[in-house]
Simulated assay, not measured.
Amino acid sequence: MEDGGEKVSSQQPQGASYTYWVREATPDAVPLPVPKMLSQNDIVSQNSDPATLGSVWNRAGTWEEKSLNKWASDRIKELLITVGTLEFTGGKAEIKEVSNCIGDAFLVTVRNKKRVGYTYELTLKVKGEWIIQEEKKMVKGRIEIPEFSFGELDDLQMEVKLSDEKDLLHQDKKQICQDLKKFLQPVREKLLQFEQELKDR
């Protein structure tokens, strides 16, 4: 068929297909970058540049996230066990174990600025003794702290559950739970310490 003096073939060359959409490798094509192991000099020069945060490979200080879960969970447990014994009008109690410490903590470098954050939930096993009806009784229980995050410790809440309450009157259980809720302030102080240590990392 002729159109404007040019012949237009309705047939395509064999094997042409759609390969022209694919960039084919040629001898003069730019080679792919090869991974390079950092030398000791690279690491030293990175350490001598205080303006750069994050890893050696991230000199531009773009996005980099580092998990701090192991350190954070261990540190929270260490701090809370050191709360010590609280004395109440009718008894005393202490945190014996952090039985549940679930969450995430991280350090993010964004545009050469460091940011940290965390989200956790806790269960603390407590043990104490109270004078109930002129008799000393050993009481065990747990304090559950629902999910809390970085910068939210002013809103920290806890729920107290007693393990051995069959022999306790309702008013005694109520009093013991109120006493155990007094752990809120010292626990908050330890978590504030943890938060500060996290920011300093």
Rank of each mutant, 00 (worst) to 15 (best):
R111M: 11
V34R: 02
E94R: 09
E121W: 01
D3L: 14
Q175F: 04
G4A: 10
D179R: 05
L169P: 05
I143C: 05
K136M: 12
E24W: 12
P35F: 04
A25K: 15
E147Y: 06
Q157K: 15
E2S: 05
G90K: 09
P13W: 13
K199Q: 00
K7M: 11
G84S: 12
Q40S: 07
I132K: 09
I132N: 02
V83I: 11
A51G: 05
I131R: 12
R142A: 08
V8Y: 08
Y18E: 13
F150G: 00
L32Q: 12
T19L: 06
D200P: 02
K190D: 05
M1T: 11
E121K: 09
G90D: 09
Q12C: 08
K137E: 10
G90V: 01
E64R: 06
D74W: 05
G151D: 04
G117L: 07
P146N: 01
D200G: 04
T19D: 13
Q46C: 04
E147Q: 14
N41G: 07
N41S: 13
R142D: 04
T19G: 13
E159D: 12
E189Y: 09
S10L: 15
T62F: 00
P186Q: 02
I176D: 02
S48G: 07
R201F: 13
K113I: 00
K166P: 04
Y118P: 03
Y18C: 11
D172E: 14
K166C: 02
T82A: 15
K70Y: 09
E134C: 10
T123C: 12
L53N: 08
W57R: 14
E135Q: 15
K127F: 10
E197A: 04
E6G: 01
W63Q: 09
Y18L: 12
K182V: 07
W130N: 07
D172S: 08
L162Q: 12
W57E: 15
G84K: 08
K166Q: 07
D200W: 03
R59N: 11
D167I: 02
T89H: 08
E152L: 14
R188F: 00
V108Q: 09
R75M: 06
S9R: 05
K113L: 05
S99A: 12
Q11D: 05
S99W: 06
N47I: 02
A29W: 07
L38V: 02
P35D: 08
V116G: 01
A29D: 14
E64H: 01
A25E: 13
G61C: 01
Y20R: 13
E65A: 14
R201T: 14
V83Q: 08
